[in-house]
C-alpha cells in the first residue's frame, strides 16, 4: 500500500514537473535563442542548444537601443509609485478603520466601486489632464498618473481592521498622535500586507505598457516594455535581427525573473494573500 502510494506520488510529481517545465519553456527558449547566430535559427533545425554561444548579441542589442536606461526607468518609476502608494493608502486605510467621520461608509463604497473598473476607460481624459499639467513625455507623468491603487487601499484596510482596538485606545490614552499610532503600531503589525501590496504593485508597474506608451514619445522616458516594443516594431520584420531581439527581450524579462526566483516565497504569499480579498 505504502509502496503503491509512493509510486503514485512519483508519477504525479513527474507530470507536474513536465507541466512546470512547459510553463517556463518560452523563457528558456528565449534565452537559448539570444545566444544563437541568425543562420542557426533560420536553418530551422530542432536543436535547442546554441552550438557556439554568441554572448556578443547582448552588447550588440545594447548598442541599438538604450535598454539599460529603459530598465532603469521601469525600476525607478515602479519604486517611487510603490512607496507613494503605500504611504497614501496607509493614511486612507487608517482613516477608514480607526477614525470616525461623517460619510465614512459612503466614501468606502465609492472607493470600492472603482475597484474593478477598466483603467482604459480613463485614458482619454487622463491624457488631456497629463498634458494640461505639463507632464506629457516625462517620468513624472508616469508616476503621478499611477499613484491611485484601490487594491492596496483594500488590502491595507482589511489588515488594519485586525489590529486590536484596545491597543490603539491605550496609545491614545498615553497621548500618542494618530500619526504615531499609524506608523508605530498599526503599520508594523500589518507588515506582511504592506510587503504583499508592494510586490504586486511593483510587478504591474514595472511591466506596464499601454498607458506609458501613450504618454511618452522620447527614448529617454521609455519604460522597458515600451522601448522593447518600439524596437521590435522597427526591427522585428527582419529575420536577421532575430537573435538581437531575443537578447533585448532577455534584458527586459530577466530583472524581475531573478528577483522572483530569489524572493519566490514572498511572491507566492503575496498572490495568495490577495485571494482573501473576495467581496
Amino acid at each position: 500500500m505504502a509502496k503503491r502510494e509512493k509510486i503514485e506520488k512519483l508519477i504525479l510529481f513527474l507530470i507536474l514537473l513536465a507541466i512546470g517545465l512547459f510553463m517556463v519553456f518560452p523563457m528558456v527558449w528565449m534565452m537559448l535563442s539570444s545566444l544563437k547566430t541568425t543562420e542557426e535559427i533560420l536553418g530551422g533545425s530542432l536543436t535547442l542548444l546554441p552550438s557556439d554561444p554568441q554572448w556578443s548579441n547582448f552588447p550588440k542589442a545594447l548598442e541599438m537601443a538604450p535598454f539599460l536606461r529603459f530598465v532603469w526607468n521601469s525600476f525607478f518609476t515602479a519604486s517611487v509609485i510603490v512607496i507613494v502608494q503605500l504611504f497614501l493608502s496607509s493614511l486612507l486605510a487608517y482613516a477608514l478603520t480607526q477614525m470616525e467621520f461623517k460619510g465614512r461608509n459612503t466614501l468606502f463604497m465609492i472607493v470600492l466601486s472603482t475597484y474593478m473598473l477598466p483603467a482604459a476607460a480613463t485614458y482619454v481624459p487622463s491624457y488631456v489632464i497629463i498634458s494640461r499639467l505639463g507632464l506629457m513625455d516625462s517620468l513624472a507623468g508616469i508616476i503621478v498618473s499611477n499613484l491611485a491603487n484601490v487594491f492596496t487601499i483594500f488590502l491595507l484596510r482589511q489588515n488594519f481592521l485586525k489590529v486590536p482596538k484596545e491597543l490603539i485606545e491605550a496609545a491614545r490614552a498615553d497621548g500618542a498622535s494618530e500619526w504615531t499610532i499609524l506608523w508605530k503600531i498599526v503599520a508594523p503589525m500589518s507588515k506582511n500586507a504592506l510587503i504583499n501590496a508592494s510586490i504586486l504593485s511593483f510587478v504591474l508597474n514595472f511591466n506596464n505598457y499601454l498607458w506609458p506608451s501613450l504618454i511618452t514619445n522620447s527614448e529617454e522616458n521609455y519604460l522597458i516594455s515600451v522601448g522593447l516594443n518600439r524596437f521590435f516594431n522597427t526591427q522585428g520584420a527582419f529575420e536577421q535581427t532575430f537573435p538581437l531581439i531575443m537578447a533585448a527581450t532577455v534584458i527586459s524579462v530577466l530583472p524581475l525573473l531573478i528577483i522572483y526566483f530569489v524572493l519566490q516565497k514572498y511572491f507566492i504569499s503575496a498572490v495568495s494573500s490577495s485571494s482573501g480579498l473576495k467581496g
Binding site: 514595472f206 511591466n207 505598457y209 522597458i224 527586459s252 524581475l256 525573473l257 522572483y260 507566492i268
Partner: peptide, 11 residues
Amino acid sequence: FAPWITPMIGM
C-alpha cells in the same frame, strides 16, 4: 507561476 511575473510585451 513564473509566467505571471514576466512582462506581457516581452513574452
